[in-house]
Structure formats: structure tokens, C-alpha cells
Nucleic acid binder design. Structure first.
Length: 301
DNA sequence: AGAAGGACCTGCACGC
DNA sequence: TGCGTGCAGGTCCTTC
């Protein structure tokens, strides 16, 4: 067991996509479930906050963290009104507590990090939010590039469900229907969070490679069997990345963030010019949908 | 309405 | 050594 006073950095080297966000959410859940927010502090930099900081700070104080989980690329913190009589948390309860009254949504953007830290430790640069907890710890949101976002979601209108469909659980028919009639490239479609949420640039490239589909193909013109292959490839790569990250991030404790997320072996991403692992043809890189896009010109048609 | 492209933002790699 | 430049990408916004 690691010293309690050391900061835990729930951290990833890569831009957080679905597997990284899932791992981080699980890590926060394991540590903070049942803890209570005493007060909250937000930096004066307003942009990251979809909800005004003053309103957020007032709403958060006194709420207990009931559960932390992932929806798309969002980390969702279920919050309930803390009661005076302490109720022991039941470890097996998976369903959202019926008395969850609001949800804190955290989007890490590209460089956002969550730290579970002892309060006495100095705030790192680019800290934009701190939740002071009854246990004496703090949950800190650090984001140098400021693409991350925080918001409060009221459950009056229902639990947060994200902008699109969940790639790991979507049915075959629904998956195929997502792309019907779409004129944009399959790569751009995969990145569109209002269709599937959670897929970013890296896993889009990797899943298209495994499905042997060229990223430039029009989404609406891919026949059903190829789309089913893509769904299978996407789920396989996401699940293996979750497995790879699950063990390392959760127990990772270090102040300088040197180790961190165990990265799965990329087959095409950031491998421009290197030989395809299947056929040896040099991997090509183009810009598509404004993003660096990597593929094998031989294997992917 | 759907698609495309730019803006946002900072750290880092690179070239001179 | 040090400075300037370009690049990376998730999401929002504007334009077409």
C-alpha cells in the first residue's frame, strides 16, 4: 500500500478517449465514493466552466459522492445530499442511487487531469478546480491546455446520457443505422460525438485499420458487412485498451507522472512511414476531418 | 440540415 | 544558446 499523503494522479499520457476516461473514472470512484464535498474552489479562468463557478461552488458544498463513472468521454460524478446519520456504502450497488440529485460532469479535453491529493500539497500549475473533501483530501482538476470542461447537470431532466450512442453497447442494427445516408467520411463520422461518443482520433484510426476500411470512405456507402466489421474492431480495440489501462492507472501514485497509462501498441497511429504490421507497406498519413489520419494504403480499401 | 473548416490553447519538437 | 515557427487535437462556433 502506498503512503496516504502522496498525491494520486489519475493520469494518461495520451489524449483521453473512452478507455482512458473509463479507467480514470473507475480510479476516482474507488477512492472517493462516499466522501463528502465540504467546499469547492474554482480558478478565475471562466472558460472551463459550463456552469458559473459561484453557482457550482454553492451547489456542490455538502454533497456526497455516490458514484463516479464514464459516459462517452465524460466523467460523471453522481452527487447526493449527505445525511447526518451515516449510511454505510454498499460496495455491490451498481445502479444509480435513486436520491442522486445532481451530477458533476468532467470532460478532460486533451490535457485535463484529475488528482486525488492531500490538501497540504501545493497546487500544481494550471489547477482550475479543487473540491475539498471531508476526508481531508482534495479532488483537483488540472488542465494546461484548457480544453477541458466542468459542468453541473441537474437530474430533474434525467441522468446525463451523453451526446451520442455508447460504442461498447450499441446493437448491430443501431450501429449500421447511424451511418445511413451520411455523406461525410467514415473517419469524420467516428469522430462525431453526436453519433458515437467516446471515440477520438487514435481509436478511430486503429479501429479502421483493424476493420480494413480506408478512412476516406463515405460513411453512408459502406455496406452492412463492412460496418459490422468496424463495430467489432472498434469494440475489440476499446476493450483491450480498457484492460491495459485498468491495472496501471488505478494504483498509480507518483508526483511527476512518469509512468502512467499503459499504452496499447498502436498499429497505424503515429506510425507514418513505418511498415504496416500486416503487409509491410509504409503507413500513410493524411489530414482528414482536420485531424492527422493514419492508414495502410494496401490493407485498407 | 448536414458538412466543413477555423478558433481556441499550451507544450514541445524542430530549424536556424 | 535562444528564439521563432509549426504541430498536436476535442469541441464549439461560424460559414457554406
Amino acid at each position: 500500500m502506498l503512503p496516504r499523503q502522496e498525491p494520486t494522479i489519475l493520469y494518461t499520457q495520451a489524449v483521453p478517449e473512452l478507455p482512458e476516461v473509463e479507467t480514470i473514472a473507475n480510479g476516482v470512484d474507488r477512492r472517493l465514493r462516499g466522501d463528502t464535498i465540504v467546499s469547492a474552489w474554482f480558478s478565475t479562468y471562466k472558460e472551463p466552466f459550463r456552469t458559473p463557478p459561484a453557482e457550482m461552488a454553492e451547489s456542490l458544498a455538502g454533497l456526497r459522492i455516490a458514484r463516479v463513472y464514464r459516459v462517452g468521454k465524460h466523467i460523471v460524478v453522481d452527487l447526493e445530499r449527505a445525511r447526518s446519520g451515516h449510511r454505510p456504502s454498499s460496495p455491490n450497488r451498481e445502479a444509480t442511487p435513486p436520491d442522486a440529485q445532481s451530477q458533476l460532469l468532467v470532460h478532460l479535453g486533451m490535457t485535463g487531469r484529475l488528482l486525488v491529493s492531500a490538501a497540504r500539497l501545493p497546487l500544481p500549475p494550471h489547477t482550475h478546480a479543487v473540491l475539498h473533501l471531508a476526508s481531508g483530501r482534495e479532488l483537483r482538476f488540472v488542465d494546461p491546455r484548457r480544453f477541458g470542461r466542468l459542468a453541473l447537470h441537474s437530474v430533474d431532466a434525467g441522468l446525463f446520457t451523453g451526446p451520442g450512442r455508447e460504442p461498447l453497447t450499441i446493437s448491430t442494427d443501431d450501429f449500421v443505422a447511424l451511418f445511413r445516408g451520411r455523406k461525410l467520411s467514415i473517419k469524420a463520422a467516428l469522430l462525431n460525438q453526436s453519433l458515437l461518443h467516446g471515440v477520438g482520433n487514435i481509436y478511430a484510426d486503429e479501429s479502421l485499420f483493424r476493420a480494413k476500411i480506408r478512412p476516406t470512405r463515405r460513411a453512408g456507402r459502406l455496406p452492412r458487412p463492412r460496418l459490422l466489421r468496424l463495430r467489432q474492431a472498434l469494440q475489440t480495440v476499446l476493450k483491450s485498451a480498457i484492460r491495459a489501462g485498468g491495472s496501471s492507472v488505478s494504483d498509480y501514485v507518483d508526483a511527476d507522472g512518469q509512468a502512467g497509462f499503459f499504452q496499447i501498441q498502436h498499429r497505424v497511429y503515429a506510425r507514418e512511414g513505418q511498415p504496416c504490421l500486416v503487409c509491410g507497406t509504409p503507413i500513410r498519413r493524411i489530414v482528414l476531418a482536420g485531424r492527422g489520419t493514419h492508414f495502410c494504403p494496401q490493407c485498407q480499401t
